[in-house]
Design a protein around this nucleic acid. Structure first.
Length: 121
DNA sequence: CTGCTGACTGGTA
DNA sequence: GTACCAGCCAGCA
């Protein structure tokens, strides 16, 4: 089943995040093949059993830090140490630093309809 | 802009 | 089939 497979994709996607950049759970989920599985990604990240997976580089959407097992503030320091200034609970220039995995950043950005029946999928 | 609430989804155990 | 989770988005104050 994809249980192990999905997890592996998520871990791989996270490990692909270059230093100095950040990705959101949603981006990781999308990179894993399920753009709506952001929650599931968070679940997997929490276990964080795989090495080489900088879960601290994975943050919530909007540039928010999101959570972190044990020490959320540690995450903030780690990001800051990588060259990512964090103000309060948000990443500075987040939109410019967010790494989507393989998607250009200058692309769309909520234009209209997104949640309503848009005949997508 | 910031903060909180509410309703939703997707995957794991 | 149920419960759990480190989210995401939209709306409101």
């Amino acid at each position: 089943m994809a249980a192990n497979d999905f997890r592996r994709r998520v871990l791989t996607a996270v490990s692909r995040i270059p230093a100095g950049r950040v990705a959101t759970y949603g981006d990781i989920a999308a990179a894993a093949g399920s753009p709506r599985a952001s929650r599931a990604v968070g679940n997997i990240m929490r276990e964080c059993r795989a090495p080489g997976v900088p879960c601290h580089r994975v943050i919530a959407a909007g540039g928010q830090l999101g959570g972190y097992g044990g020490s959320p503030q540690l995450k903030r320091e780690l990001l800051r140490a990588e060259g990512i200034p964090v103000i309060r609970n948000r990443i500075r220039e987040f939109t410019d630093r967010r790494w989507t995995g393989t998607r250009p950043k200058g692309s769309g950005r909520r234009s209209k309809a997104t949640r309503s029946g848009n005949g997508d999928v």
